[in-house]
Design a protein around this nucleic acid. Structure first.
Lengths: 348, 348
DNA sequence: AAGCGAAATGGTAGCGCTACCAAAAAAACG
DNA sequence: CGTTTTTTTGGTAGCGCTACCATTTCGCTT
C-alpha cells in the first residue's frame, strides 16, 4: 500500500488561496518541490530530463511563482524602489524611464516613491520601502537625513544615488556636476560678450541642485569681474508659467539685463515664448540660456541654448550599476559622471 | 522556575538577517507577538496600556514591519501595479502621478510596468506582477488578451482600467470617451467654417485610442458632407518632431488644407512651432487643433486650441476607486467618465 | 568490479508574520 | 457574589518558498 500523502487540496487547512503552488507542480512532475525551485531558478543545476518534465508541469498547471514567499525565504524581492523628489518634473520621469526599462529587462520591478523635496518624508518613505525587502534602492541626491544614510549604509544592499555627483555617497553614485554645469553656461554667456547676467530659478530653497548651479554661475561671474549676484527666484514649482513670470519680473526690475540664465529649460522656454509673444528679440535684446536639453528647446524660435544632460542614460547607467552589484560583481567604478554638454543654439 | 524560551538571538539557526522582528518587540514589551501585530494593524483591539508599551518598544528597537512576511501570511502586499503602454508619453506620467499621490497617502506603493503598446508583453507582465501578490491592479485601456482579462476577473481583487471608457470592463473603469472627443474637435473645426480638414497622428496602429478619436472625427465630417478620409500618419512615437514632419507632409501633399486635427498636443505643438518658424499664419492660413490640454499649448503663439483631459484627476479618481474597493466598500459606481473640455484658443 | 569524487535530488526546517481558535481577564448581569 | 457575556490576550499552525545539509545517482578511474 502506498503511503498516503494528504491530497493536494485537502492539505489547505485554512485561508488557502486556490492558486497553484510549487508543491502542485512537484506532484505533477513527480519530483520534490525543491527540485522545481531549482529548475526555475538555476536550470543548469537540474538534469535535462527533469527540467523538461517540470517545464511541462508548469505550463500545464499555469504555475506562477509566488514571489512573496520566495522573497521571504531567500533574500530579495526583485524590486527596486526609486525615490525622487517629484513626479511632476519631467527630468525625474526620464531618469525613471531609463531605470525602469533597464531593470524590467533584468526581471526587476520599479517601486515608485516621491518625497516632494522633503527629507523627513524621504526618511520615512525609505524606512517603509525597506519593509518590502527590496533588492536595492535608487534615490535622488546625496543629501539625506543622517539616519537615512546610516540606515542604508548598514542595510547591506546596493544603493545608487543619482542626479548629483559628490565624494561622499552611501554606496554608488551616478550624476552630474551641477556646480560645473552652472559655471559652464555662465562662462558661455560671458564669452558671448554679455555683462549683465541674471540667474533665475524656482523652488531653490528645496531644490538645492539648482542652487549648486547658481553657485557655479556666481563664482564664474565673480571671477570675470562682473555683477554676480543678480538672482531672481520664486518658490512655486517649475513651469512655463513660472518662467514667464520670472522673465517679466526680471525685465521690470532690471531693464538693462543682457542675458538670463534659467535654472532649467521649462523656465527658459516659458520666458522665450513670452518674449516671442511680446515681440522681444532673442538674443538681440536679451539672451536666454537653459539647462537640461528638453526637446522642446529645439523647436522654439530661436532654438534654445542649453546644457543637455543625458537623463534617460543616467537612469540606464544607474540601473546597470545596480544590476552589476546585484549580480555579485563589484561595479567597475562606484561613481559615474554622466556628463553634460553645452548646446549653443539661437537664443544666446 | 520560569519556562526558558530560547533567547531571541540564539533562535536564529540559519540565514537570519539581524533585523528587528516582531518577536523582539514582543519580548521587549512583555507580550506575545500576535499582540504586537494587533497593536500595529488594529490598534483599537488592544488595550491602551499594552498599546503604549508596545509603541515604546517599537520606537526603542526601531522596528520596521517586514511587509513581505505579512503579505505572505495574510493577503495583500499593499502594492498596486500600474501598467501603462509607455513612460515616455507625458499623459501616462500625469495619470501615474495622480495615482501615486493618492495611493501613497493611503499607505500603498505603486509598482511601475510598461508594455510598449504590446498586448503580449502586457499579458506576461501582468502575470509576473501578480506574483508579487499585489492588492489590486491598475491598467491602461479596455483591450487586453482574452486570457489576461479572464485571469484578472478570476483573480478576485480590484482592477481598474483607465484612459478609455466602455461597457465591458474587467472590474472598474475610469476614462474618457475618445470617440466623442475626436468628434468634438472635428465639430468645432466645422463650426469654424473649415471644410478641408485632416487628422494627423502617430503610432495609430498600436495606440488604438488615437484611432478611436479619428473614428469620431471621421464620422462627424462624413455627416457634415465634407471630405472625411484625410488622414496622415507616421509610425514613430509622438514627439514635437513627428508633429513637425506630419505638418510638412500634409502641407506638401494637400496644400489646400484648411485645418489640421492632431491626435495630441505634442504633435500639434510641433506643427505650430514649425508654422511659426516658416512664418505661416495660424489660423488664417491653416488652423491647428490638438488633444490633451498640455500646459505648453497655452504658451505658444497663437495659443493652441485643444481638448483638455483631466489626466492627473483621472489618476486620482482611479486610485480612489481602487481604495474604496480595497477598504471593502462597494464603490459608488464601477465606471467613471472623467470627461473632457474643448478649449477654443487662438489656433483655430 | 570495486572505489571514488562529482553531480543531481531530496528532507527538513525555517523566513516573519497573521488567521484561527482557545484561554484568560474584565465587565455586565441577576 | 456567582454566572453569563464581552473584551482582551495568547498558542498553534501555517502562508509558499528556499537555504542548508544529507543522500542518492552517475560517470570515471584503476
Amino acid at each position: 500500500m502506498l503511503k498516503q500523502t494528504p491530497t493536494t487540496r485537502s492539505r489547505r487547512r485554512h485561508r488557502g488561496t486556490d492558486s497553484v503552488t510549487i508543491q502542485d507542480v512537484a506532484s505533477e512532475a513527480g519530483v520534490a518541490p525543491i527540485t522545481v525551485s531549482r529548475a526555475l531558478n538555476t536550470p543548469e543545476s537540474v538534469s535535462a530530463k527533469l527540467r523538461e518534465r517540470i517545464d511541462q508541469a508548469v505550463a500545464k498547471l499555469g504555475y506562477v511563482p509566488n514571489l512573496v514567499a520566495g522573497g521571504l525565504a531567500s533574500a530579495g524581492m526583485r524590486m527596486i524602489p526609486v525615490v525622487v523628489p517629484s513626479l511632476s518634473i519631467l527630468t525625474f520621469i526620464e531618469v525613471i524611464h531609463g531605470i525602469q526599462q533597464t531593470l524590467e529587462q533584468a526581471g526587476y520591478q520599479v517601486l515608485l516613491g516621491s518625497t516632494d523635496f522633503d527629507l523627513d518624508r524621504e526618511a520615512s518613505l525609505i524606512e517603509s520601502l525597506l519593509g518590502y525587502s527590496p533588492s536595492g534602492v535608487i534615490l535622488t541626491g546625496l543629501r539625506h537625513h543622517e539616519r537615512t544614510s546610516l540606515r542604508l549604509k548598514n542595510w547591506g544592499r546596493p544603493v545608487v544615488e543619482i542626479m548629483e555627483l559628490g565624494d561622499e555617497c552611501i554606496d554608488m553614485n551616478v550624476g552630474v556636476d551641477n556646480h560645473a554645469a552652472g559655471a559652464c553656461m555662465a562662462q558661455h554667456l560671458l564669452d558671448r560678450g554679455f555683462k549683465r547676467i541674471a540667474y533665475l530659478g524656482t523652488g531653490m530653497s528645496r531644490d538645492y541642485r539648482a542652487m549648486q548651479r547658481f553657485e557655479g554661475h556666481r563664482e564664474t561671474l565673480k571671477t570675470a569681474g562682473v555683477e554676480f549676484d543678480l538672482l531672481f527666484r520664486r518658490e512655486e514649482p517649475s513651469s512655463y508659467e513660472a518662467g514667464r513670470l520670472l522673465f517679466l519680473e526680471a525685465l521690470k526690475t532690471r531693464p538693462d539685463l543682457e542675458a538670463l540664465h534659467f535654472a532649467n529649460d521649462n523656465l527658459a522656454a516659458g520666458a522665450l515664448m513670452e518674449a516671442n509673444r511680446q515681440g522681444i528679440c532673442v538674443p538681440e535684446e536679451i539672451a536666454i540660456g537653459g539647462y537640461l536639453g528638453l526637446s522642446l528647446g529645439e523647436h522654439l524660435s530661436p532654438r534654445l541654448s542649453t546644457i543637455t544632460v543625458p537623463r534617460y542614460e543616467m537612469g540606464v547607467e544607474a540601473a546597470k550599476l545596480m544590476l552589476s552589484r546585484l549580480e555579485g560583481q563589484q561595479p567597475l567604478a562606484p561613481r559615474l559622471d554622466i556628463g553634460y554638454e553645452l548646446k549653443v543654439r539661437g537664443s544666446t
